[in-house]
Design a protein around this nucleic acid. Structure first.
Lengths: 359, 359
DNA sequence: GCCGCCAGCCAAATCGTTTTAAATTTCCGG
DNA sequence: CCGGAAATTTAAAACGATTTGGCTGGCGGC
C-alpha cells in the first residue's frame, strides 16, 4: 500500500547540516557519536553535547541500510494470544530498554493455511530483524533447522533435541514436576493426576518425564488415564479435572500446568463437593503474573515457580550476546524452579489412603 | 552496541542483478513490483513470477530509507504486562498479516524515572514507526497533544476529551455499565458495588458515569463507599469485594471491571459463605479471552462483552486508513457492548430486599 | 510521409548514513 | 627546525532501493 507523507511533519536535522554547524566533517561526527577511538575525547564530548542541544539523531533507516542491521528482535506470537506472552515480553523490554533495539511482534495468522515455517522463513529473509526468538519448541523442531539453514541468529526459549547447534534458555521443567510429584507422594498420595501442556511440545514431555520418574522412584505404577494434555485454559483445567474425578478410585492430587489450569481444577474439585487442600491436593506451575497470584487463591495454591518476566529479560540479554558474536552452542541456560508450598497441598485423607477399608 | 555480521549469511539478490536477469532496467522492475501503471501488464506479470521464482525481495531498509516510511505501527506496552495486551495485539496482527507492516512493541521501562511522554516523544521522532496506538487514555491526555504536535499519526484506543483532533476507537463503556447496573436494579438490587479500573482513566470515568446514571434513573442514592478503583487483578477484586461485603448492610450485587476482578469477587463471596447467583449477583466486563471464559465459571458469569481481539483488528485497519490519508477527525468509532446474562445474576434475596424485617 | 502522442522503458539522482582510504595536523626527539 | 610517526580529520564511495525526467518506437491522423 502507498500512503502520503501527510502529517509526518517531523523534520530531522541531517548529519551533513549538523556537522556543518559544528564545523566538522560528517565522518568525524558519525565517529564521535558511535564512540570510535579515532576521535579525540574533547571533540567527542562536544559533539555529544551539541547533538543533545540541537536534537540531532541519526536517521535510523539510513543506519540500517548501511550497516545491514535491523535493530530489532523478532518474536512470533502464538496462534491464540497466550496470556503468558505479554509477561515474557515485558521482561524482554526491560532489558532492551537501554539498547537501541526494538521488539518486533509477528503474529501467526489465525486461519493458518500456509505452514508456520513459511512465516519464519519470511521473517528471517525480510531483513526486519537481526534475530528471532522461538517459543514452545518441539523435540524435533523444524523451525530450528530452518533458521539455522537461513543463517538467522536465534534463541530458543525452551529446548529441543535437534542436532543443530543453537542457543537456548529453559527452565527445569522435569525437575520441577518431579519434585512436585515427589512431594505429593511424600504426603501419601498415590493417585496423582497430571494436566500437562499441549502434547508434543518439549516442555510437556519434560514434565511428563518428571512426573513419571517421581512415580517410578517410589514404585508407583504409571496410569495413562491420569494424564491429560492441552492448552492452558481454565476450561480444559475444569474438564480434565472433572473427568479425572469421575474415575474410581479418584485421584487425590493434581499437578496442573498453569495458573489458568489450576483455576479450572479448583472449580472442578468444588463442583464435586470436595475441598482443595483437604480432600484434594493441587500443585500448579506458576509463571508469576501480576494479575493472578497463587497466594491469593483460596486456599492458597502450592506452586512450582519461575518468573517468566525474568526469563524474558535474560532472553533479550542472551540474544544480544549472540549478536555480538558469542557462539550459539555456548549459550545454554537451564534455570532451576522453586517449589513453594502453600495451603492447597496436604496429606492424603485417611479414607483415600486406604480405600479398601471404606469401599 | 556493535556486532559483527557473523551468522547473517542470508544473501539477497539485488534489484540490479534481478533486473539484469530479466533483461529489464531496475526502474521498470521496481515499478512493476509496486504496481505502477507505466508498465505493461505482460511485463508486470513476468516480473512478479520471476521474483517469486528467483526469490527476489526488495531490501526493506533501503525501501524505508528512500520512501521515508518505517513500515511499522508502534504500540506501547503498559508498565505491568497486562493480560489483555496480547489479545488486542493478536487482533492487530490478524489484520496486518496481509499488509507489509510490522507491530513494534515498545515497553515502558519498569523503574519509570523519566516520564512517559519522553518515551512517546522518542518513539515518534525515532522514525521507527509510521503511527502509534495509545491505550488507556485519560480525559486530558498529554500524549495526545504531544503526538499531535510532533505530527505523528496516532489512534487512540479509548477516548479522551482533549480538543486536539484525533482518531479513536472505543467501546461504549458507559452504556454497557449502565445497562448492567439497570438490570441489577430490575432484579431488585439496591446496594450494588462497583469495582472499576484505575482511577483517572477515561474508561473508568465512563463506567462510573454509567453506574451513576443507572442509579439516578431509578432514584437510588449514590454511595461512594460502594465504588472502588484499581488494576484489574484477582487480588484487588478479592480485597475490594471483601471490604464491601463487610459493610452493613452489605451489597447484594457487584459490577466487576474484568474477568480477573470477577475471579477475586467470586472468591470473596465464597469466603463469606455466600453463593454467587443466589445471595450475591455479579456482572463483569468480558474482553473475550480464549483462556478464561465466563461460561465456564461456576456459576457461569453474566457479562458485558466486547471482543478485544476484534478491537485490535479494527484498530489496525483504522491506522492504515489514517496512513493513507483519511483525516484523523473523521475516524471515530464507538462500539456497542453486549450484555450476556448467565447464572451469576439473579433476583435479590428476600432477606436482603427488606433488611428491616430480618434485622 | 510527416508529426505528435502515448505506452513502455531507462539513466541517473536521491534518501542519510557508515566506512575506507587518504590527507592533514600535531607532536616530539634529534 | 626538520623528518616522520601518531593523532585527527576529511572526501568520496558504498548501502539498495525509489523516483524524476527523459528517451524510444509504434501508431493514427491529416
Amino acid at each position: 500500500m502507498q500512503w502520503g507523507r501527510a502529517g509526518n511533519t517531523i523534520d530531522h536535522m541531517k548529519l551533513k547540516e549538523f556537522a556543518k554547524q559544528l564545523g566538522l566533517s560528517p565522518t568525524t561526527v558519525s565517529r564521535a557519536l558511535s564512540g570510535y577511538p579515532e576521535v579525540s575525547e574533547k571533540t567527542r564530548k562536544r559533539v555529544a553535547e551539541e547533538a543533545v542541544r540541537l536534537g540531532y539523531r541519526p536517521n535510523i533507516n539510513a543506519v540500517r541500510l548501511v550497516t545491514g542491521r535491523a535493530g530489532a528482535i523478532g518474536v512470533v506470537m502464538g496462534r491464540n494470544g497466550e496470556f503468558q506472552f505479554s509477561e515474557y515480553m515485558s521482561g524482554m523490554a526491560e532489558r532492551l530498554d537501554s539498547e537501541d533495539i526494538d521488539i518486533l511482534v509477528t503474529p501467526i495468522a489465525e486461519q493458518g493455511g500456509n505452514d508456520e515455517s513459511q512465516l519464519y522463513s519470511r521473517l528471517a529473509t525480510s531483513g526486519r530483524v537481526d534475530a528471532v526468538i522461538i517459543h514452545s519448541p518441539m523435540p524435533k523442531d523444524e523451525r530450528i533447522a530452518l533458521l539455522h539453514r537461513l543463517g538467522m541468529p536465534f534463541l530458543v526459549h525452551g529446548r529441543s533435541e535437534t542436532d543443530v547447534p543453537h542457543a537456548w534458555l529453559d527452565i527445569d521443567n522435569e525437575g520441577a514436576i518431579r519434585r512436585a510429584t515427589s512431594h505429593l507422594i511424600d504426603l501419601g498420595h498415590r493417585r496423582i493426576a497430571m494436566i500437562n501442556g499441549r502434547a508434543g511440545l518439549t516442555f510437556s514431555l519434560h514434565r511428563d518425564q518428571g512426573y513419571r520418574k517421581a512415580l517410578e522412584q517410589r514404585g508407583i505404577p504409571f496410569d495413562p488415564r491420569l494424564v491429560a494434555h492441552g492448552h492452558f485454559t481454565d476450561e480444559l483445567g475444569f474438564r480434565f479435572a472433572r473427568s479425572f474425578l469421575e474415575q474410581s478410585p479418584r485421584p487425590t492430587a493434581f499437578v496442573a500446568g498453569s495458573m489458568m489450569t489450576a483455576l479450572g481444577v479448583y472449580r472442578a474439585v468444588r463442583s464435586f463437593g470436595l475441598v482443595v487442600g483437604r480432600d484434594i491436593s493441587v500443585i500448579a506451575h506458576d509463571d508469576v503474573f501480576p494479575y493472578l497470584t497463587a497466594d491469593n487463591m483460596v486456599p492458597s495454591l502450592s506452586t512450582t515457580r519461575s518468573s517468566l518476566r525474568a526469563a524474558g529479560a535474560r532472553s533479550a540479554d542472551l540474544v544480544l550476546q549472540l549478536l555480538s558474536g558469542r557462539p550459539a552452542n555456548e549459550i545454554h541456560e537451564l534455570w532451576p524452579v522453586e517449589l513453594i508450598l502453600r495451603e492447597s497441598t496436604g496429606p492424603v485423607p485417611h479414607s483415600d489412603a486406604f480405600p479398601d477399608r471404606t469401599g
